[in-house]
Amino acid sequence: MESSELSYEHHPSLVRYVIVWLALLVLTTLTWRLAYGDHGTAGLVIGMLIATTKATLVALFFMHLWDQSGVNRLVFVVALVYAGILMGLTVTDVATRFTPAVARGPTLPVPKR
């Protein structure tokens, strides 16, 4: 409660916004350059790391998490954690399945309506 009252009064400076914006532009350019040249899985990992950094910058400074009370930050982290659980455990299954073959070709078309 106290911290929210503080942030209610406190307004960050213009300079901070400009710096964050420039950082975002630089990171985007970096991601874009990544697309040229084959980096394989590493490219994906780096791309996602950059995206996460950008998202965190937006959340912290444009959305003012940096100045706000702890619970708001908790919500942000919790959402990321649960999204990670959903994606992680699902992909784990797909990646470790029994796959003598993934049958290709059409299945028997089921009549529609």
Binding site: T28, A35, H39, G43, L44, M48, A55, V58, F62
Partner: peptide
């Protein structure tokens, strides 16, 4: 503005996942 930032954040993830797969 917060809602608008969310729209931005989602695009930040969509961009490498859709356009930059190598």
């Amino acid at each position: 503005a917060m809602y608008w930032h969310l729209v931005d954040i989602i695009w930040i993830f969509l961009y490498p996942l859709l356009y930059l797969i190598t």
